[in-house]
């Protein structure tokens, strides 16, 4: 899985974004220490290796923390901001959608999907189906 082309063009950031545009949520995995990495890097922050490859993210995660950004309805209303711990380990900022923002709870299981915010493809989350 590791092709160690970390300093070639396109760089990890561009590769991540291109995959996202094509509907794939990929994260990196370090060939040196096995750590999963998000956001995309050129050097593994856990061990310093440049032997980084790509894997599909499982999309499964857990809400680590959450807040509601309060906003007047005419400006779009309240929305959720959260930190999600991916099953693979990395944590990312995102939003839980399709649920009232103040009903998102720490510890809830969530599932990723690729949506759009401000005309940009982004990873968003919904509450995971029970069971």
């Amino acid at each position: 899985m590791s092709d160690n082309r970390t300093f070639d063009s396109p760089g990890p950031d561009a590769i991540y974004r291109a995959a996202l545009e094509n509907g794939a949520f990929q994260i990196q995995k370090c060939g040196g220490c096995g750590a999963h990495i998000f956001y995309p890097r050129a050097i593994c922050p856990a061990c310093g290796s440049t032997d980084l490859g790509w894997v599909m993210a499982s999309g499964r995660g857990t809400v680590y923390s959450t807040t509601v950004v309060r906003q007047r309805p005419e400006r779009g209303g309240d929305y959720n901001i959260c930190l999600v711990d991916l099953e693979e380990g990395p944590r990312l900022v995102s939003r839980v959608v399709d649920t009232p923002p103040d009903e998102v709870r720490i510890g809830q299981p969530v599932e990723a999907f690729i949506g759009e915010l401000n005309e940009e493809k982004v990873v968003l989350f919904r509450l995971a189906e029970a069971g």
Binding site: S65, T66, T67, V69, I81, C82, S94, I106, L117, N118
Partner: peptide
């Protein structure tokens, strides 16, 4: 891109945690 209203949103999540 998620408009987390930084820095407030980040500190709010620390408080929530």
């Amino acid at each position: 891109v998620y408009s987390p209203r930084n820095p407030i949103g980040s500190y709010a999540m620390a408080a929530a945690r």
